[in-house]
Amino acid sequence: MKSTSQKILGVWNTKTVVAVAIGAALFGVLMNYGGIPVFTNTKLTTAMIIPVIVGAMFGALPAAIACAVGNLIADLIGGWGYWFDWSIGNGVLGFIVGLLPLYGANIDEGIFKPVHAIIYAVACVIGNALAFGVITPIMTTLFYGGELEVTFLQAMAAGLSNTLVLVVIGIPILIILARRNARSTDLKLEEKEEQNI
């Protein structure tokens, strides 16, 4: 079994690197094309699903990095300017929603029970409140100075729409993925020496 620190930090082998990269690419594209605008620079976007999946399979830190890099890529191809405060905020959110393996949900082996769904929903709410209610405004003042009023409104819109997406779309997708992987639960993978770098 993976240790707790591995569940949080992830095992940084090639597989994780590739998964994070693909997650980031999906995040960036969905952020741009998979959303409906709700407020300035804020979208009801399906992109938030990606960190959940990366987190469920590889741990919380990979989810956070996928989220942050994904946001940078979205900024790069989106053309609304660069908002590193939001990248960091999204990274924090990715970390919190990516904590799935920590409380026992294991998508790889098909374990996702109603209890996990409830904990996950609570984590989404807390994560959004922390990421966009605390971290992003702090970073906004640090990097850009001012514009707090708009940031708070944006943060509220983003937090609400993210929570909505994470819960309403996230839970069904997690169930689908878990059911899909459950088929292979009878097979046991021999624990191989994993390279930590």
């Binding site: 940084w12 690419a25 960036g28 990095i65």
Partner: peptide, 18 residues
């Protein structure tokens, strides 16, 4: 360099997503 690889694979992968 693992982060660099993440950036380059992500960039490379965007057309594939399309």
């Amino acid at each position: 360099y693992k982060i660099c690889t993440i950036f380059s694979i992500a960039f490379r992968y965007i057309p594939d997503i399309g």
